[in-house]
Write a protein that binds this DNA or RNA. Structure first.
Lengths: 218, 218
DNA sequence: TGAGGCATAGGGTTTTTCCCTATTAAAATT
DNA sequence: AATTTTAATAGGGAAAAACCCTATGCCTCA
């Protein structure tokens, strides 16, 4: 019990990041050894610095936390991943846990929650924000098995791109113009993506986009 | 130069709030004298504690920062208001300044930015995040006069309702069914709202909805 | 080497949106 | 009190967009 827990911090809002850093560093047994403002940089730094734990915001530009989690898991299975998020949605939780995260803390929660979570995860436990535990207990566990493994096949880059633009309010035609593709191609991507996600309406696309954090300011 | 600057902090994410508090309190000439997780509570506390400055997140539940700013201005014209936000959009900036805020800092900016802003605003200056200054200089100043005062008339309840549902991906027909109105009525509300806002496309509606924080998770 | 996923796109039908106009009631202005 | 403006409702008809079905190269992987 001599060394401090070495923590890598990935969060795109600098002010928030600084706050978390101060909080973590105020703990006697923890230390922030690096910071990244983006998922891509985060995994590079993780590969390099080999932290005990990567504390990561789920919604970051370029590479979001979900993809970054998968990517890092492919590189290392020992580095712990604790995700920090605003989302209380079950589906999202499912995804991130499935991707190999060790814990999930809400930004809304008390700072002590975060510290507790870091300790728990570093000790080898899974940590779920108490506000979410109930949800998970109530039904999701049963479905978890079926989701793990095959999942509902990931969308391709193009499909994601198209859905994102649709959610933003662009028409298929406008998207076609923007990507220099025929409207028909856009329609096909849209339709395939929706089939894959098992959704059927424009509102479902928007809902999906919200969960993916595509509809933030910019 | 004896007393510390007394700061009231309004921000709904507790982790973020704690971070900012640590940051502010780490300054020798500043002190967080109260915290609120919601706009309504914030103005009550402000009336009570009479802080030098209210540092407020624009996007909070119940009463958002924009409304809270207007409300507080009606109570006191001496308490400084510094808004903290993720939004870089000009229109929003316009609104919040118009409502009587003294400064506007982006969450993305460096923590020192925030500290600088607090000092500037408390000294009686207006403070705009450098990342935004250029935008304001480039064209908005000219339009500002016309906007101030009559503004682009607020939307009615119905109009807001319709725009919100449109942003969520519902078709005019679906909205009509939901509100038990004719499609034609929905079309009219939509069209009027867009004219009032000076916007022309579906994407503008989505952008507006994002700024209104209508498209958050739930 | 063949099965399936991916990216691309056309044809034709159905659905939705857009533009203009209209009625009534309530609110603001003069 | 009379007039003007705004809000909420809605129709008709033209234009645009979305939807459903089908199709073609191109890879990859078993």
């Amino acid at each position: 019990m001599s060394e401090k827990l070495r923590i890598l911090l990935a969060e795109d809002h600098e002010t928030v990041r600084e706050g978390i850093k101060l909080l973590v560093n105020s703990q006697p047994d923890m230390e922030v050894i690096g910071e990244a403002g983006d998922g891509e940089i985060a995994i590079k730094m993780a590969a390099d610095l080999r932290p005990d734990l990567l504390l990561m915001d789920i919604s970051m530009p370029t590479m979001n936390g979900l993809r970054a989690t998968k990517r890092l898991r492919a590189i290392s299975s020992t580095i712990k991943i604790l995700t920090l998020t605003r989302h209380t949605d079950d589906g999202y939780l499912q995804q991130i846990i499935g991707a190999g995260a060790n814990g999930y803390v809400l930004k809304q929660s008390a700072p002590t929650e975060l510290i507790t979570a870091i300790r728990a995860v570093c000790a080898g436990n899974a940590y779920l924000d108490p506000a979410l535990t109930r949800k998970v207990m109530g039904g999701y566990a049963s479905r978890a098995g079926s989701l793990r493994g095959e999942g509902k096949g990931d969308l391709t880059e193009r499909e994601n791109e198209v859905l994102r633009l649709i959610a933003f309010g662009y028409s298929n035609k406008e998207i076609g113009a923007q990507l220099d593709l025929s409207v028909k191609t856009i329609e096909a991507h849209k339709s395939n993506a929706m089939r894959k996600l098992g959704i059927a309406s424009r509102t479902d696309i928007v809902r999906y986009a919200i969960l993916q954090n595509w509809l933030q300011d910019n």
